[in-house]
């Protein structure tokens, strides 16, 4: 058995989906790690593989059509990719928990939220019903839901979007997990509520000493909460860096393009309108990936080698990795 110094160590993960037209390589040789107590941002656009990576860690890939076809996910000396379903069930929700974008679809509409949180304590802690319910109410209090006793007896549709996401967080943190995977947790929320939820997550992360994997398309959210960032594009990690370094000196042309293409709050009213740089074209379909670098068709720096050969993930030192031929020898 292989041990890793990291809390979670994803090595060369490949998750593919069989479709009628061919094999979609949704996650294709993805490696990164998560350390205790840190917030890791995973950023990318639709189809980049960020959510499939998260579902692979949780072993929630619908199989078929999906399948983890290669690589390892090391967690506490275990390889999650080959763990038997019963052992995985004990980890899922207990030691690694997940929250999703749309709390309305991830909560069960026919059970009260108190029931759903109490179930966590009954399943993973073997508590009796009454004690589990008390714990559920205590969790709702921790996520700052007003009148938790009353709210515990309510159904998801009776709560606002922000309250539902708080309830989801309460459920995810119920068993004091070592890892919390948050997949676009604030995307469906209004901006003032988003601020509340991000604030709450950071505070609870401190209280519970949970490592957080924050998956988002919003570079603003990344800048505010993450210490380290993984940038994904078309199933690959294209850049990895400490947050400050990534925003100050992005290396990959895709990361640079992204940062230059978003309007920044306060910029125009202070400095006038800057031309928004466009990344031409669009994300390639997973069935028609270019043979070389997957970003090559949209890249302004592309050369012949980019069309022929896929770049390796290159170590630039100072915890920075980039997958681009610009930085090869």
């Amino acid at each position: 058995m292989q041990h890793s110094a990291h809390l979670l160590d994803i090595q060369h993960l490949k998750t593919h989906f069989a479709t009628f037209e061919g094999v979609a390589r949704a996650v294709d040789d993805v490696s990164f790690h998560l350390d205790r107590g840190e917030v890791l941002g995973v950023v990318g656009e639709s189809g980049c593989g960020k959510s499939v990576t998260a579902q692979s860690i949780m072993r929630l890939i619908p199989e078929p059509p999906g399948k983890i076809v290669g690589g390892h996910i090391w967690f506490d000396g275990m390889d999650l990719t080959t763990l038997d379903p019963a052992a995985m069930r004990r980890i899922r929700g207990d030691r690694i928990a997940m929250i999703f974008q749309e709390p309305m679809t991830s909560l069960n509409p026919v059970y009260t939220i108190g029931d759903q949180i109490a179930e966590m304590f009954e399943l993973h802690r073997g508590m009796k019903r009454r004690e589990a319910w008390q714990q559920a109410v205590a969790m709702l209090e921790k996520v700052q839901i007003p009148a938790p006793h009353k709210r515990a007896g309510e159904y998801p549709h009776q709560l606002s979007g922000g309250m539902r996401q708080r309830a989801m967080i309460a459920m995810a943190l119920a068993c004091d997990p070592e890892i919390l995977i948050a997949d676009e947790p604030t995307t469906a929320l209004d901006v003032t509520v988003q601020a509340q939820i991000l604030d709450l997550m950071l505070q609870l992360k401190e209280d519970f000493q949970t490592a957080v994997m924050m998956i988002t398309h919003d570079l603003g959210v990344i800048a505010e909460v993450a210490q380290r960032v993984v940038v994904m594009y078309a199933g690959k990690v294209v850049e990895q860096a400490p947050t400050l370094a990534l925003f100050e000196d992005p290396k990959h042309p895709y990361t640079r393009g992204l940062l230059r293409s978003i309007p920044k709050l306060g910029e125009r009213s202070r400095q006038g309108r800057r031309h928004l740089e466009e990344i031409p074209g669009m994300v390639p379909g997973l069935l028609e990936l270019p043979p070389g670098c997957r970003f090559e068709p949209r890249c302004s720096h592309a050369t012949a080698v980019c069309r022929e050969r896929e770049p390796e993930l290159l170590d630039l030192g100072s915890n920075r990795l980039v997958r681009c031929h610009l930085y090869g020898s």
Partner: peptide, 23 residues
Amino acid sequence: ALLSAVPVPNPKATRHRILLQGD
């Protein structure tokens, strides 16, 4: 409050965030 709540893609930005209560 609305403006202060927008996450800004600049990790060095120091801003005073006005957290609104409730929905």
